[in-house]
Design a protein around this nucleic acid. Sequence first.
DNA 1: TATGCAAATGTTATAATGTTGCAAATTTTC
DNA 2: GAAAATTTGCAACATTATAACATTTGCATA
Lengths: 163, 163
Amino acid sequence: MAASAIPYRPHNHDACVAQALADARAICQRHNARLTPTRERVLELIWQSHKPLGAYDVLAVLAEDGHNAAPPTVYRALDFLQQHGLVHRIASLNSFVGCTHAGKSHNGLFLICRGCGNVLELTAPAVAQAVSDAAQAQTFEPEDTVIEVAGLCPRCQADHRDD
Amino acid sequence: MAASAIPYRPHNHDACVAQALADARAICQRHNARLTPTRERVLELIWQSHKPLGAYDVLAVLAEDGHNAAPPTVYRALDFLQQHGLVHRIASLNSFVGCTHAGKSHNGLFLICRGCGNVLELTAPAVAQAVSDAAQAQTFEPEDTVIEVAGLCPRCQADHRDD
DNA sequence: TATGCAAATGTTATAATGTTGCAAATTTTC
DNA sequence: GAAAATTTGCAACATTATAACATTTGCATA
Ligand SMILES: [Zn+2]
Ligand SMILES: [Zn+2]
Ligand SMILES: [Zn+2]
Ligand SMILES: [Zn+2]
């Protein structure tokens, strides 16, 4: 699977996309799931950048494609992609971003830059452990954890100082 | 300020509400902010239980009150209450819950039971520290952190076993 | 190759959540 | 009490998400 690039820094993003699509094909094959053209196209659109994309943004691009899609088409594709761990929903933004750890079991922690909009997904075992401990202390059985950190990425911190 | 009750367990909830309102009055006074009747009523409604309430749920109760309110009324009141740390928005549920640590500087961690719907707000310094470390490792400057853990509370774990 | 089933998609309508903009009323300040 | 600032009322609108049901497609098997 792909090594994660740092979204805030310039990088060969076409490689990100290509890798994500290749990973997706492999994962779907392994899951006996069908990565249909619509699903693959939606995944590709989500991966257009490291900024999360809203469902209706996806819909708009599909319309430009000439694909006469309605909201359920997009939401169904996104559900599928989430189910197979290929995209994540960012709850605080009502939008979706490609998973940079697809295939690995992980619980994402998202660093969301309010300057440039890019999102970096991390795997942070120490955080996961601390959350697990906190839950256990309350005899609470965690099933799904959302961790979203909004702030400024290194680049945007610098830009901000230049003002 | 109030000691937190455990939402999952029976408790004198009227005391929760009374305490929350008293705290709110004190905090607003300290902030030179006006806890108007509408705002106070919304806070009281949010505190009707430890289950988060949607903005439109609040709106519906206001309508029953005979208060002819529109969505902006509710959203403005909720914004105000959030600003002064009296309620929290649960991003993964698009809904709002009373803060059980009002007045104290804190970053909430929410345990959300998918069985009974109750939410327990914790202050977990170890989690906050781990998140801070993870962000710092990426030179990311955190401003606002959302941590929401969905799962089963002790009571609902037991109920589930009884099925 | 026909046929039958399950998965996926199309289509229409609607629900749920949240915002903008401006006017009127209220409260505070001077 | 007049001026300024804050709060509320109100109408329209924008965005996000789902329900319900018809149709098509992919695939296995007779
Ligand atoms: Zn991921
Ligand atoms: Zn940035
Ligand atoms: Zn709180
Ligand atoms: Zn429960």
